[in-house]
Design a protein around this nucleic acid. Structure first.
Length: 333
DNA sequence: GGTAGACCTGGACGC
DNA sequence: GCGTCCAGGTCTACC
């Protein structure tokens, strides 16, 4: 008999909206079940892998939505029910709760959302504020590396292979496991290409050595006394992490004052915001466009992009991973 | 400080 | 089925 956990959530939390809010929910080992409206994945816990299925109470009757407005099937603020495929120890239950809290941003309460919506009221109606992330910073950083200099289908493929080849029963690989991997294995079996050496070096930086703490200190990176510029500069010093990747990791750390501008941003600037000119000039105009959103500018940027995807493909909680997931860039929509 | 070219993979396309 | 081209961000060497 597997362990079942009930997780209290903020009053505005909606599983289908808040889990399906960033592309990583489409990447292995995550699996969003469209029919059931549940999220399943392997978690890596102290005693090994454990598969969890996350559900939230659904409305009896699906609320009728106004044209152009997306309605979500779950009851806001209803506790999450998380079923594991094996019994968890007390220590593992604490670990699982911490990973779920990180992944679903349960630490961002209504006060946080109100502050964001005060700066950018466009998302108040839908309630969008949380951005899905991974249960661990290591997985977030590696997922970011797999999204650099590749098209989205390759990112999907790399994450699937990493879980199959180096994961435990299909989990995302641990930093320890990847630190021990041979670059040649990553290249040949996970198809990560030239990122092989960088990924192993990155993994080593997440693992304490002897009495020495890990070089990547998540507590320091998320500490409010560490300013954004210092955190960003540190991130760009990591192997395989440039300005785009560092900007993305900043938001994954809960620091939304930076943008992560890439080719997708350029398309958004041209197609949605009607910007013209050279790529460099559009990048500058994009930075200026989001400046008014201050400490939340990444959220404003990202929800504009997400909104565009949803106008083309429908609500993200109804996306089929194999169908829509493989075409998730503006150029393919 | 700015820029050119290399780094890999997978998909699209033409033959 | 094969060859060619292209998209994608980071890193290094060079000016």
């Amino acid at each position: 008999m597997g362990t079942r956990l009930n997780i209290r959530v903020p009053a505005d939390f909606v599983l289908s909206r808040d889990a399906c809010s960033y592309g990583y929910f489409l990447l292995a080992p995550n699996h969003w079940d469209v029919r059931q409206q549940t999220l399943a994945r392997m978690f890596l816990l102290a005693e090994g892998g454990a598969r969890a299925t996350i559900t939230q109470e659904q409305r009896n009757t699906h609320r009728t939505s106004r044209p152009g407005r997306i309605s979500f099937p779950h009851v806001p603020g209803a506790p999450l029910r998380v079923g594991f495929d094996r019994a968890l120890t007390r220590a593992e239950q604490i670990q699982a709760r911490a990973q779920l809290t990180r992944m679903l941003r349960l630490d961002e309460d209504e006060t946080h959302a109100r502050a964001f919506h005060a700066l950018d009221p466009r998302w108040k109606q839908s309630g969008r504020s949380r951005l899905y992330r991974s249960p661990t910073l290591f997985e977030d950083v590696l997922k970011t590396v797999t999204s650099c200099n590749v098209t989205w289908p390759s990112t999907i493929h790399m994450n699937r292979r990493l879980c199959d080849v180096l994961g435990e029963s299909g989990s995302f690989p641990s930093a320890r496991r990847m630190a021990r991997a041979r670059p040649g294995t990553l290249r040949a079996r996970c198809r990560v290409g030239y990122r092989d050496q960088r990924m192993v070096e990155l993994a080593k930086m997440f693992v304490p050595r002897g009495n020495k703490p890990a070089e990547v200190d998540e507590a320091w990176l998320t500490d409010p006394s560490t300013d954004d510029d210092t955190a960003f500069t540190f991130l760009t010093s990591l192997p395989g992490i440039g300005p785009y990747a560092a900007g993305n990791i900043m938001q994954l750390l809960g620091r939304y004052s930076r943008l992560a501008l890439d080719s997708e941003s350029l398309r958004h600037g041209k197609a949605v915001l009607g910007m013209t000119g050279t790529d460099a000039s559009i990048m500058k105009r994009l930075a200026a466009h989001y400046e008014p959103f201050g400490e939340f500018k990444f959220k404003s940027y990202w929800f504009e992009i997400w909104d565009y995807y949803e106008t083309k493909r429908g609500a993200s909680h109804n996306w089929d991973r194999d169908e829509v997931g493989s075409s998730l860039t503006a150029s393919k929509l």
